[in-house]
């Protein structure tokens, strides 16, 4: 059972905090911009000729994916801090189902991440990318879907940790590999077999691929169909939501 009031207020709480900490917004947006212009700008001279598209254009979907990845994971693992500071206890004793808490947390991450991704998306004219209004709506839709999938994944991860010493473990062993093996910075179909397999079980790969459909139209750098991408993202969201809810329900 899902309580609308509980979901609503958990999202509201996150949004209040998001807009209150404006400096945080600036710094989280700085990372994708830096990657786009410093790495993208630098690498473009090296790799561009063989690829058929401008390198900055190639990584733009990946940069949106990166924005969502970091923001969603960060929002989700704030659960660990909520646990550490006791806030989670206050929420867990309320008469709301654990699924409501998971959904509320996941939607918070989804909205906050999509807002950030949308701000980054506004850079597209400067990179020579052309998007119709319909494409922009499609991109926002994919961002929402991808954010939800990553947020629920983050919540599953967060349920395994009690304290934030785990933060750097999560960053180095989960988030960074997910980013590099998603096709964000280079095409995954040219990777060695083992890494290719990992990239194929990485939900971010499908999100980034779906974004490429809008931005790199007709390029042979796209690996899956839109239908596959969307189906995988939905499947991941449902699976992670259920897993997180079940783990939350378990008492010590």
């Amino acid at each position: 059972m899902i309580e609308a009031n509980a979901v609503y207020v958990l999202v509201l709480r996150e949004l209040i905090k998001f807009f209150r900490a404006k400096s945080r917004l600036v710094t989280t947006l700085a990372r994708p911009v830096i990657w786009l212009f410093l790495i993208g700008g630098g690498m473009s001279r090296l790799v561009s000729p063989g690829m058929g598209v401008d390198y900055m254009q190639f990584i733009f979907p990946g940069i949106l994916g990166m924005t969502i990845l970091f923001s969603s994971i960060f929002s989700a693992i704030s659960i660990i801090w909520d646990k550490e500071f006791g806030l989670m206890k206050g929420i867990l004793v309320a008469p709301v189902s654990r699924f409501s808490i998971v959904i509320g947390k996941a939607l918070s991450g989804t909205i906050v991440s999509t807002i950030q991704a949308f701000i980054i998306l506004l850079l597209f004219p400067f990179l020579g990318i052309k998007l119709s209004l319909l494409s922009i709506l499609y991109v926002i839709f994919i961002c929402l879907l991808l954010s939800f999938a990553i947020s629920t994944l983050g919540i599953v991860i967060a349920t395994f940790y009690e304290s934030f010493e785990s933060f750097s473990v999560i960053m180095n062993f989960i988030v960074m590999p997910m980013f590099f093996l998603s096709g964000a910075m280079y095409p995954v179909n040219k990777l060695p077999a083992i890494l290719k397999v990992i990239s194929q079980i990485n939900p971010l790969t499908y999100g980034v691929d779906a974004l490429k459909h809008a931005m790199l139209k007709g390029s042979d750098l796209i690996d899956f169909s839109v239908a596959t991408d969307i189906a995988v993202l939905i499947a991941c969201s449902v699976a992670f939501t259920i897993i997180a809810g079940v783990i939350f329900e378990r008492k010590k």
Partner: peptide, 21 residues
């Protein structure tokens, strides 16, 4: 303490009011 220190007193109360329907 289980208050959300980033929120106001009113917002903390509101959070609970909604959680308790």
């Amino acid at each position: 303490p289980t208050l959300d220190k980033e929120l106001t007193a009113y917002e903390n109360m509101m959070l609970h009011a909604y959680l308790y329907n």
